[in-house]
Simulated assay, not measured.
Amino acid sequence: MLANTTRTLTEAQREQWAVDGYLQIEGALSSAEVDFFSRLLDDTVRTAPGYEPAPGALPRGHYAWKLPDQNKDAFMDRRDLLPYHQAFIDLIDRPAIFDLILDLMGPYIQFSMSQAIVRASTDLFPGYIHTDGGQAQKAIRVSETSRPLAVKVMYLLTDVTADNSGNFTVFPGSHLRPFPERAERVPHPGMPGAVPLLGKAGDAYVFPHALWHGPSPNHSGKARKTLLYNYCQMFMRAYDFSGPYAAILDRCTPRQRRLLGDLGHDFRPGDFFYAPEDQEAVMTGA
């Protein structure tokens, strides 16, 4: 059993997290919020250049500044959402979800990454399975009684109520054991043990970096839209920014500023390993 200062998960959720490695939170966003964020992706994020994948120019996992396909149902993978709208900033520590993050990870954490993905309906994309965090983290797993290193929240902005709809697909328990990844057996969503999850727009999935997961093919006839927010322990590097996120700190609450790397002073050796004395109070809102 994890020793927590914030108790938010039910015992059933705590057991599922330890055994299966993920949670599904129904109704994390209201229908009005789903519509708002969906329009924001269509009318603001997609219409402006930003950090997008650049296959052939940059390796997988690296992003270039570019304008995506302007078809609202076409593929889009946008990083670094926070500057586009205050609502993206406020989603960082949305109470109903952030309370779960604190329960799972403890208070010595930072925000690491924001991302919007639109998965087009197409016969050309077979889906894929992966872990998060790059080559090194792929081989790092913690026990069921340990704090996770990094946790991601995926918010559904479209209904996913049938298979082959771009489902978030997981291999339950794979966060605790070596997972075969060989040239003759590349992980894919159709492998034995894969579980394609169903959900309604507004639902959220919570999972650690070490869980093998990925999108199934999308043959549904409609695009699947999601938002993803990542949190990691303070001693780790953030994904989207290299230091305190100075460009938006004046739009943030004290807790959001702390999550974005503002420790209240200029950098000195030991920062992010030994947190400020008020870290727990700032994170919990005490």
Rank of each mutant, 00 (worst) to 15 (best):
M1I: 13
L2N: 04
A3T: 11
A3S: 11
T5Y: 09
T6R: 08
R7N: 14
T8M: 05
T8R: 06
E11Y: 11
A12Q: 14
W17P: 03
A18W: 04
Y22S: 05
Y22N: 06
E26K: 15
A28R: 01
L29T: 00
S30Y: 01
S30Q: 00
E33F: 05
F37D: 01
F37M: 05
S38E: 12
L41R: 11
D42V: 04
D42L: 03
V45Q: 11
R46F: 03
T47Y: 01
P49W: 06
G50P: 00
E52Q: 15
P55F: 02
P55V: 05
A57E: 15
R60E: 15
G61I: 14
G61H: 13
G61A: 14
L67R: 12
L67V: 07
D69L: 00
Q70F: 09
D73G: 05
A74M: 01
D77V: 09
Y84C: 09
Q86D: 12
D90R: 10
L91V: 05
D93E: 08
R94A: 13
A96L: 13
F98T: 05
Y108T: 08
I109E: 00
F111P: 01
F111Y: 11
S114R: 02
A116C: 09
V118I: 05
V118Q: 01
L124V: 10
P126Y: 03
Y128F: 15
H130T: 00
T131M: 00
D132Q: 07
A136G: 05
R141L: 11
T145F: 14
S146A: 13
P148G: 10
K152S: 14
V153N: 04
M154W: 00
Y155W: 13
S165R: 00
G166V: 00
N167R: 12
F168E: 01
H175R: 11
F179I: 04
R182W: 06
E184Q: 13
R185M: 11
R185V: 05
V186T: 14
G190W: 03
G190H: 07
G190D: 03
A194E: 00
V195Y: 10
P196L: 01
G199W: 02
K200G: 08
K200N: 13
G202R: 08
A204F: 10
A204W: 09
Y205K: 10
F207A: 00
P208S: 03
L211Q: 04
G214L: 09
P215S: 14
N218Y: 01
H219W: 01
K222S: 13
A223K: 00
K225T: 05
L227S: 05
Y229C: 06
N230C: 12
F235P: 08
M236W: 13
A238Y: 04
D240H: 07
F241A: 04
G243R: 12
A246R: 15
I248A: 10
C252N: 13
C252F: 13
T253C: 10
T253P: 08
P254L: 06
L259T: 07
G264N: 00
F267E: 08
R268M: 03
P269N: 00
G270A: 08
F272E: 14
A275R: 01
A275Y: 09
P276A: 04
D278T: 07
T284I: 08
G285R: 02
A286W: 12
